[in-house]
Design a protein around this nucleic acid. Sequence first.
DNA 1: GTGAGGAACTAGCGCGCGCAAGTAACGTTT
DNA 2: AAACGTTACTTGCGCGCGCTAGTTCCTCAC
Lengths: 332, 332
Amino acid sequence: MSQTTSTRRVTAADIARSLGISRATVGFVLNDTPGQTISEATRTRVLDEAKRLGYRTNIAARALASGRSRIVLLVLPDWPLDFNLRRNIEEASLALDEAGYALITYTPHPTGHSRPLWETLQPDVVMSMTPFAPGQAESIRAAGVTRLIPDPDAPVGEEYPEDGPVLQVRYLFELGHRSIAFAGSADPRVADLVALRRRRANDAAAALGLPPLPSADIQLTDASAGGAIDGWRAAGITAVAAYNDDVAAALVGAGLRMGLSLPRDLSVIGHDDTPLASMFQPRISTISVNTVGLGRYFAGLALSAVEDRPLPLAGPELRVALVPRASTASHD
Amino acid sequence: MSQTTSTRRVTAADIARSLGISRATVGFVLNDTPGQTISEATRTRVLDEAKRLGYRTNIAARALASGRSRIVLLVLPDWPLDFNLRRNIEEASLALDEAGYALITYTPHPTGHSRPLWETLQPDVVMSMTPFAPGQAESIRAAGVTRLIPDPDAPVGEEYPEDGPVLQVRYLFELGHRSIAFAGSADPRVADLVALRRRRANDAAAALGLPPLPSADIQLTDASAGGAIDGWRAAGITAVAAYNDDVAAALVGAGLRMGLSLPRDLSVIGHDDTPLASMFQPRISTISVNTVGLGRYFAGLALSAVEDRPLPLAGPELRVALVPRASTASHD
DNA sequence: GTGAGGAACTAGCGCGCGCAAGTAACGTTT
DNA sequence: AAACGTTACTTGCGCGCGCTAGTTCCTCAC
């Protein structure tokens, strides 16, 4: 025992000694090990004594003996952690905890130099909500992790369904707008998602018989929003579908500062239904995304990777809904 | 060896066997153990062979043998993770990594039921950027963690300096405002920080010879902002110091919807200089907070708790600065 | 010549668990 | 009666490391 504290850790051997039974029996009880038959009387005695003595499993000993850390590392991109994402993480955390695993979230710093957690923690599985960044999968594998989700070697299959932009464009079309632009974010952290939503918006436009949407990527706090509006108005654009609520808000603020009357001169719709969208004046129309069940699905993926469990059924269907507000109006 | 994979993990014993030396020597080299003398030739052979064989320390074995997980758990409140906080976390992460520790951030879910990470990870130390929540320190201790920072039993000493609200009130005073209100957030997650900033604002008011500031806590997206403005205007309030930019933005949006002309009818100043503040129309005055060096200080605290290191010097001085924008104006 | 100290390693125990292989007693089936 | 299966445990090895206590040889000072 290398600890120097006066209160030494309680071990399974202490329980065994106290009850006059073997340590293996204690282990079988504490783990409810399948394939072992333990009498109810002995089970109760073990559990009571463990509680009385304040027994805590030594996770390092367990990991060493079993060859498994029971850690699931979830790599998050550098996105804002909104309410939905937090709830998904907690859902996943709970499902994994019930199976005896700890979920750890980790956002690698883009220019960070510290060792990544997949090296220092030696997790059983590393998951990501987006495809792994270039070099990331290699780094994870070099650290000895063999279970990566999504599988970097799998063919690029069905992408995350993104129906919000379709809804945005359809709504503007139904309001009578025929010259619609798409506003993305210049933030490199979300470039992939911006590109995806832009493509979906263009899909919707094509389905409605509209030409490809003029597009600009703006910064939130500089003059690029104003510049983009100038260009669009010169081209006769009457409505904008924005990548998200922040982009929409930057456009609304810039438009007002330019002396525009919104939504008469320009209709703007955002995405993700953040609090920001309803704080602005005018309140900003948006798309809400219901992600309930996603966390449980992710946990199911992780457990199927590390244990002999079936893959979960197909992921939950994301439901998007239009939230109409004062930033959009009909166009004749 | 309980793993069934075809590529068994490389161990220190493998390196020792390969070089015809003892495993203890391998360990002394890999850990650069003080008090041991290893020839440069042997050191080089060990390091080369470890690299050649792809050796990775088994952290579970290390933790079990040494009695230390080398994990520092940082409990974060459910606050938005802004750019400054992310940078602080990376600073701390790097400093701890250099000392051989892994920093894990963890935001307990307010109504979550999964086991907290201080139980499942058995970290060497648990830190929090704010005082521990009621019952939290007890839960952490019950999990066997003896090192908590800040020490829950220490007398409540110097609180985190909060000079931003002082700056807010002083600025409004210098603009000629004599009837100033404080707007807090009704979000229970930030109740402590709201209370602290409110108290600091009142300190500043008292120092300026003003009576205690009328105060209201608002939600961001309901009618409470409008209600608060009604009450304040009825009481002759001409300016508001808001707990943060979100609260300020909710007030500005609500004021505009009520037909007020801002800042002529009401000046509003926020706090934290988020992008939101400069996206609104009118752009919102705010307070910026420079937290550089804080991460390194936190890492120093952690290392002094787990190793024989001196306490770091007093924490870095936070620098706050006024960012004047169009939401505030002079009052005659 | 003798003793002390340092260099450069070695032998091996312990950390606390998982779990395969085993034992003894009892009940059931042939 | 013998064989087999079940119940309810036990024995003890291995996981991979940290590190104490030790060994051998060499050098230097007295």
